[in-house]
């Protein structure tokens, strides 16, 4: 099963490499990883998505908790949560394809953020499967030149927070 794990991390040099290193060292898989400082500049927030059975994911959270720089860990997929990912995608777009792409974009609530006579650059935000669906629906219509995805960020629904 796919899990979204959120980590509150000391914003120290080397802290990120400990997390990444743990995953490769223990043979855990990383689907995506995002990290950035929080409103408290001494802390970073990291989101990692991984695929594994319950036992593996239990070990992942325990091992993450063991890292000295890790302040808190939560498996967001255990509760109600929201996940978002940002994608920028550059497409070859000319002739009547331009209108077609524009329409698909609107359906997915994407924005065209850069235009040249031959290309569109589209920005799309949503859960990862929505981004996948967008790419799939472009499939036979446009040719994709470049895809940049931010990786997943997540947050719990309701009043639950991950903080000190």
């Amino acid at each position: 099963m796919r899990h979204i794990i959120s980590v509150l991390l000391e914003n120290e040099p080397g802290a990120l490499s400990r997390v990444v290193g743990l995953f490769s060292q223990r043979n855990y898989n990383i689907e995506s990883l995002t990290v950035a400082p929080t409103e408290d500049e001494t802390l970073s927030r990291l989101t990692v998505t991984t695929i594994g059975d319950d036992r593996v994911v239990e070990q992942i959270t325990k091992q993450l908790n063991k890292l000295i720089d890790v302040v808190k860990v939560v498996d967001l997929s255990e509760g109600e949560h929201i996940e978002r990912e940002l994608m920028m995608i550059k497409l070859k777009a000319n002739g009547q394809m331009r209108a077609e792409i524009k329409r698909t974009c609107d359906i997915f609530r994407g924005q065209i953020i850069d235009v040249t006579p031959n290309t569109y650059t589209v920005q799309l935000v949503g859960a990862s499967d929505k981004l996948d669906a967008f790419i799939a629906s472009l499939g036979n219509m446009a040719s994709i030149m470049e895809v940049v995805r931010s990786g997943v960020s997540g947050i719990a629904r309701g009043e639950k927070v991950l903080s000190l």
């Binding site: 040099p13 080397g14 490499s17 290193g21 060292q25 000295i68």
Partner: peptide
């Protein structure tokens, strides 16, 4: 040394 030792230490520090 921080990188080399990372997988085999409980923790490591570099003095700044």
């Amino acid at each position: 040394m921080l990188g080399i030792s990372r997988p085999v230490v409980k923790h490591n520090f570099s003095i700044q």
